[in-house]
Nucleic acid binder design. Structure first.
Lengths: 239, 239
DNA sequence: GAGTGGTCTAGACCACCCT
DNA sequence: GGGTGGTCTAGACCACTCC
């Protein structure tokens, strides 16, 4: 049963730098010592330092900019209450934060079955709307919503708002939300949208919203970098 | 606005190997070509190949064993229905899978406040029970439960069972579960317990169980590798 | 002994940012 | 020009597994 390196040089370096960051030994806004400086201090190779720094980027602790240096990453975590399944503008105001919805694309696509294996999804081509949702100016979530073709007469309405709002505009209200919450390495889209590295942990919500109109379901996926968003749920336990 | 490398050699290699795995070009159980073979095939350095393979380990696609080779990682995903907040043996049987609970440690610790910032936790020293939960023989979850000191007369009971079961043994039943679901890079404990690399995405549930006895709350954290467990929740939407 | 992956180094080049 | 991080290479050593 292999694994566990722990004794590696880059691990020692990583843990020491991590400790310093947690002890606030580096000011946010000013760069950490350069890789060359660290290499001299720790008495190890340049490359070993870079390896440690890269690992710390992958866990969200640091962020490097070529030509500028390496910085402590500032975090701002938002809590998404699943009791209000999909933050709409009303919810955002309630939470006291400025929410923005930025349209990425409107296309016609089939639902990616492998992601929705826990759901019964239609196989026909759906309207597919991708939005970036930001809170207080920082992007925190990329949402892909699939709406049935019956929405075709108002596709233009879909941009810049969330599926729940689009539903509302059609006079429909969803009454049940079924949500699969999972962790995942960042998708390609999330990597681009949030400028995060390959493998960066993200939180995914794969959801189905149903309305009183039984033929009308909205499916979707939301993805957020792990350090931007968490979900809260409160449950009365049956028996 | 930096970031985005995509054109890097190791990225091309990574994507090509990833494609081959998804296309089932490599049999599970037999090793992939060695780094040396890949280096020859792609016409790049040994080290560049290793970099790509390492990234693919960090996203859970591959798993390497020194002396043996690199293998496609077999995944088995369990779905945890939050409607039955904490899988007990009864729930496990209902789901038709063999659940195991393996005691790691019983200690007295204070609750780590920074992890429970969304909860109001007691500051006194609590009983702290760590268990590894496995399903069908594979470990899928490490759980840390904090129980109030009033459980002191039966600390011996805490091993090998979950907090909800311990509660039941005391004639108490929880009626509300408050759960914060988040993604995170693997904690040190999870790294050891699941033999996963630094930065591996995990799903965390930070929870509070309350009973009709208002002074009795159980707090806890569960952590699972992202490819082992997801959470499902179904909600009636108020309003 | 041969092959494997993991680590570490020295050295090089690039694109970027600042002065 | 000098500093930064990012990439890539060649070469070495180690611990491991299998034959």
């Amino acid at each position: 049963m292999p694994r566990a390196v722990a004794s590696a040089l880059y691990e020692k370096v990583r843990k020491e730098i991590m400790r310093r960051v947690f002890e606030n030994e580096y000011e946010v806004g000013t760069p950490l010592p350069s890789a060359a400086k660290f290499a001299e201090e720790f008495g190890v190779s340049n490359i070993t330092i870079k390896r440690a720094l890269r690992d710390l980027q992958h866990t969200g602790l640091l962020r490097s900019f070529p030509g500028l240096g390496t910085f402590v990453r500032e975090r701002r975590m938002f809590i998404h209450d699943l009791g209000f399944p999909f933050a709409s503008f009303g919810d955002a105001q309630r939470l006291g934060l400025k929410q923005g919805v930025h349209l990425l694309s409107v296309t016609r696509e089939r639902i990616h079955q492998s992601l929705f294996s826990e759901f019964e999804t239609p196989t026909e081509k759906m309207h597919c709307v991708r939005n970036i949702i930001s809170a207080d100016g920082t992007p925190i979530m990329i949402d892909t919503s699939y709406l049935p073709p019956s929405f075709s007469n108002s596709v233009g309405d879909l941009g810049g708002k969330l599926a729940s709002d689009a539903l509302r505009d059609h006079g429909e209200h969803f009454h049940t939300a079924r949500i699969l919450v999972a962790a995942n390495p960042a998708s390609d889209e999330a990597q681009k949208a949030f400028a995060i590295p390959n493998g960066y942990p993200t939180l995914r919500r794969i959801y189905q919203l149903t309305t009183s109109n039984s033929s009308l379901s909205i499916f979707g996926i939301s993805e957020s970098p792990f350090d931007c968003l968490a979900c809260l749920v409160e449950l009365e336990v049956s028996k």
